[in-house]
Design a protein around this nucleic acid. Structure first.
Length: 112
DNA sequence: ACAATGACTGAAT
DNA sequence: AATTCAGCCATTG
């Protein structure tokens, strides 16, 4: 990683996501000032397998609340299982009550 | 240095 | 309203 600045930022934001909440790639990208680089966020997650502390990539889904990245986990059910264990309802790889569990860094990490 | 890739998103049809 | 198309931008070969 010659210049993991972007990844580091992504990891940091993802790690800030509280248990029982989820966020979207676009929200993270926007918080980092790169709202159009949502794909890079997903790519960062792809590299986040061996980073430490561990990055809760299971709390990051696409803007529709769909577990788009579940296929990248060792077990396809690992992502849904972890979300369910945190109190998030997932049916058919789709997060239920997505608007209630959605965690927007721009709103939560904003200056109070 | 060029071209291709990708866990997305928004706009157009 | 649902599906399709194109843009976007950092990293890798």
């Amino acid at each position: 990683m010659s210049d993991p600045t972007f990844y580091e930022k992504v990891y940091e934001v993802v790690r800030l996501v509280p248990a029982g909440r989820v966020t979207s790639y676009g929200a993270i990208a926007k918080y980092l000032g790169a709202s159009r680089s949502s794909r890079l966020v997903g790519w960062a997650m792809n590299v986040s397998h061996g980073v430490s502390p561990k990055v809760p990539a299971h709390r990051v889904v696409n803007r529709n609340g769909l577990l788009s990245g579940k296929a990248h986990f060792g077990e396809p059910n690992a992502m849904a299982s972890r979300l369910t264990a945190e109190g998030i309802v997932v049916v058919e790889d789709q997060i239920q009550h997505f608007d209630e569990v959605f965690w927007d860094p721009e709103l939560e990490l904003r200056v109070i």
